[in-house]
């Protein structure tokens, strides 16, 4: 029905700092240049995922989708 790609991480329902921890675990195994799609609905993640990305040299774009937010992270 949807052409939406499967998220690499579905952190919906998780509270901070868990979304960032799960994302960091995933990112650790992957080479730089990899793109990850993550979903989260914790309001704190909207500040925390970009802040984590800045501290780790990744880039991130956010897209608000009603009940949750989609994060596209390109690993640095």
């Amino acid at each position: 029905m949807s052409t939406e790609p499967e998220p690499d991480l579905d952190a919906r329902g998780l509270k901070c700092p868990l979304p960032v921890i799960r994302l960091a675990r995933l990112a650790r195994e992957l080479p730089s240049g990899t793109t990850l799609l993550a979903l989260a609905d914790d309001p704190a993640a909207e500040a925390d995922i970009p802040a984590w990305a800045r501290m780790r040299g990744h880039t991130v774009t956010l897209e608000q989708r009603g009940g949750h937010t989609a994060y596209v992270v390109v690993l640095g």
Binding site: K15, P17, A47, D48, P50
Partner: peptide, 24 residues
């Protein structure tokens, strides 16, 4: 100013506005 506590749902709007980590 973190929101990980059960008492608050929104993190510090100040930290969020500055693009800083709100947890920890």
């Amino acid at each position: 100013g973190s929101a990980c506590t059960s008492s608050r749902l929104e993190p510090s709007h100040v930290l969020a506005a500055m693009g800083s980590l709100t947890h920890g």
